[in-house]
Design a protein around this nucleic acid. Structure first.
Length: 703
RNA sequence: GAACGCGUAGCUCAGUUGGUUAGAGCAUUCGGCUUACAUCCGAAAGGUCCAAGGUUCGAGUCCUUGCGCGUUCACCA
């Protein structure tokens, strides 16, 4: 049956993927060379698990293109190759999108019991997970679905809890007061990532504290003041240090202290220290061992104040305090200012920093080992700039708050004895007896782990639980490939926890890719209306064209500007390859796949064979160095210019004599193109050699 | 304020330890339905490599300074 004039991706793609799955082509093959080092006979990538709460976006498509090229190339080179797929429960993110859905139905999470909410989220996420996996398949991802993992699989949870327990047992976990970003409206705290800083016009109030004048935008918190701080270099206040100031309205005496966190130029240069309701002040309080007074409760109402303010909402309390201050003559002036205010990214209300108890991990010992592993090149960064960023983060990482006040996640395996209030940490089971007071009644911590705490254990947690001896075979993995925005959250913590748990690095190489931007280099966002839906592009131009477009012309580590014109150009390239195959197979009843060059050669035959070998070597080298753009360009030029335009044209006058060389160059070209454009190359292969050969995915890379 | 980048053709980007005449895709112009492909073929035009200085036999590439732009982190009493 002759090939069509144009390659029709719609007709082939689904069937090709099914063919690979049926042939079990994604499972790591056996390599029986005992004398080789592990790194020479295996190649593995753990997929960065996408959030199971959304459709794949174009950024996911980029990592699929990159990782699948590396994987397919390694597979064709004869290595035992594993690409392990997975999905992330994405704690806060998922709960946020889910609550939006609830809101559309006029409900909120407070309408449900913890267990019911968890169950609903579970179902929601599993629906998305399945469709997300289908989308990965449509992009041609050759990952081993029999090893698929979800971050909330029971066996993963067990490992995560075990890690927490051993950290706790070794004294690397502690509980401490932390100023959390609390939204009184939503009833939860948020991480820094979930805070929007919004510019707002407010008033700065100058207040008379007796010995000094201070400036504040939050006069309602004066009841929570515990000190006045000035910069040690500030000559205006030097003689006041150690003296007292007086809080107006309640006439409480507080000390005047020095702290370099105070900016001389802001306000009056004298700062009222309110540790319970301000992050800077909280830090100052730690350095000077000051007490804390909380005057705002979790509903955003005043507490611990003179009776006339108790129960007022913050804004009302502010008005009342200001008017009282005016009456007493201690309000010196009001100055309008524009400043950034922390607001909730969900409901847009003002965030109230509040003190609460949280679980922390001491990071110093972990970062020390991670830095050492990077210095000793046990973990290599493909690009130096990302190594610099990783090292910078590792050197500056603060102790890690791993507790979150949400339901959607792994509940922290810590129980508080109802009798003596001491904490008991287990690997998951409810404790029987309190080791402290022998009581047997406990209440479990309701907080869940930060998503990054579990995903930082992903490489070993996945490989340890496939039931296939994979940890021994594939750990550490060859390459960790992911986007740069999660380098500090994820990559460095995987190194930290991998070293902690396994005494070995989790991966040998780190490959970081940039974002996908639109054709003008603009960041892609819904509000800008420049969203590129990868599946729409797959429908329109084929998965192969999209994959090529996602690596074409730009280095992996840089942001790529993707245009539909570019994808169309790659579709044209795919069609060119198709037609080369069509030409070679026309008038030819039976083709043989040849992996050796045929005998009879003239000068042109000789030249193209030489060029083919050189190109295969160049592509090898470029892939090894992660310069996929260069690899793709060499492939493109070889097939289009050298093969089609020059060599193939030259054979038209001597068709029958050149036929063996044509067939040889064709089959080898298809092999070289396969990692980049898996569908069309397999479609051609099946058309030409499907009856006599194993699928292309199993074939060896040209030598 | 700090860290890390970027500045090369109209646009988006390559240019690997310094080494012929600086490249690609897209866009543009001209000519072609040549029996694999018009999703094509042939040809052309297009660059003071941000600026200044330095190192060198030689600089797009290395160093210094300046200008412009970006990302992230910190701060915002």
């Amino acid at each position: 049956m002759p090939m069509e004039k144009q390659y029709n991706h719609i007709k082939y793609e689904a069937g090709i993927y099914a063919l690979w799955e049926k042939a079990n082509a994604f499972a790591p093959q056996e390599v029986n060379k005992k004398n080789l080092k592990k790194s020479k006979k295996s190649f593995s990538i753990i997929m960065p698990p996408p959030n199971a709460n959304e459709d794949l976006h174009i950024g996911h498509a980029r990592f699929v293109a990159i990782e699948d090229i590396l994987i397919r190339h390694a597979r064709m080179k004869g290595l035992a190759t594993l690409w392990l797929p997975g999905a992330d429960h994405a704690g806060i993110e998922t709960q946020y999108v889910f609550e939006k859905k609830l809101k559309e139905q006029g409900k909120s999470r407070f309408d449900y019991e913890r267990e019911d909410l968890y169950k609903m989220l579970w179902d929601y996420v599993h629906k998305y997970k399945d469709s997300m996996y289908d989308q990965l398949k449509r992009l041609g991802a050759s990952c081993d679905w029999s090893r698929e993992k979800f971050t909330l699989d029971p066996e993963i949870i067990a490992i995560v809890k075990q890690t927490f327990k051993s950290l706790y047992d070794e004294g690397m976990v502690y509980r401490d007061e932390q100023l959390v970003n609390y939204c009184p409206n939503c009833g939860t705290s948020f991480s820094e990532l979930e805070i929007d800083y919004v510019e707002r016009d407010d008033l700065m109030y100058y207040l008379d504290y007796g010995t000094v004048t201070i400036a504040t935008t939050r006069p309602e918190t004066i009841f929570a003041d515990v000190a006045i701080a000035v910069n040690p270099q500030d000559s205006r206040y030097k003689k006041l240090i150690g003296k007292k100031a007086t809080i107006p309205l309640i006439n409480r005496q507080i000390p005047i202290i020095k702290d370099s966190a105070v900016d001389k130029k802001l306000g009056t240069g004298a700062l009222k220290v309110t540790p319970a309701h301000d992050p800077t002040d909280f830090e100052i309080r730690k350095r000077h061992n000051l007490p804390t007074v909380s005057v705002i409760d979790s509903e955003g109402k005043m507490i611990n104040t003179p009776p006339e303010y108790i129960g007022l909402r913050v804004a009302d309390a502010r008005r009342k305090v200001v008017s009282m201050l005016k009456d007493r003559g201690v309000l010196i002036k009001e100055v309008p200012i524009r400043h950034a205010v922390a607001t909730c990214y969900k409901c847009k209300n003002t965030i109230e920093p509040m003190i609460s108890k949280q679980w922390f991990i001491k990071v110093k010992p972990l970062t020390k080992d991670a830095l050492l592993a990077i210095r000793k090149k046990q973990v290599k960064f493909a690009k130096d700039k990302y190594k610099k960023i990783a090292v910078h983060w590792l050197k500056n990482l603060k102790d890690w708050n791993i507790s979150r006040q949400i339901v959607w996640g792994i509940q922290i395996p810590a129980w508080r004895c109802d009798q003596c209030m001491e904490w008991v940490v287990t690997a998951g089971e409810t404790p029987n007896k309190c080791p402290n007071c022998k009581a047997s009644s406990f209440t479990q911590e309701t907080d869940t782990f930060d998503t990054w705490f579990s995903s930082s254990q992903w490489p070993f947690a996945t490989l340890m639980t496939t039931g296939k001896n994979d940890f021994k075979r594939f750990y550490p993995t060859s390459v960790m490939e992911t986007a740069y925005d999660i380098l500090p959250f994820w990559v460095i913590r995987m190194i930290m926890l991998g070293l902690y748990k396994t005494k070995n690095v989790p991966f040998n190489n780190v490959l970081i890719h940039g974002l996908v931007r639109d054709k003008n280099g603009q960041k892609i966002s819904k509000s800008k209306g420049n969203v590129i839906n990868p599946l729409v592009m797959v429908d329109k131009y084929g998965a192969d064209a999209l994959r090529m477009g996602l690596i074409w012309g730009t280095l992996i580590e840089n942001d790529i500007s993707l245009s539909e014109e570019n994808i169309r150009g790659q579709r044209n390239f795919a069609n060119k390859l198709w037609n080369v195959a069509r030409f070679v197979s026309l008038n030819q009843s039976q083709l043989k796949a040849m992996s050796r060059a045929p005998r009879s050669q003239n000068k042109n035959d000789h030249a193209i064979i030489k060029k083919l070998r050189r190109t295969a070597k160049i592509i090898d080298k470029e892939i090894e160095n992660y310069r996929l753009n260069q690899a793709a360009e060499n492939l493109y030029n070889f097939i289009w210019k050298d093969f089609a335009n020059d060599y193939l044209e030259s054979t038209k006058s001597r068709r029958s004599k050149a036929q063996p060389t044509l067939e040889y160059i064709l089959s080898e070209s298809i092999k070289m193109a396969h990692p980049f454009m898996p569908f069309i190359t397999e479609a051609i292969w099946q058309n030409l050699y499907g009856n006599s050969q194993k699928p292309l995915i199993f074939q060896s890379w040209p030598k």
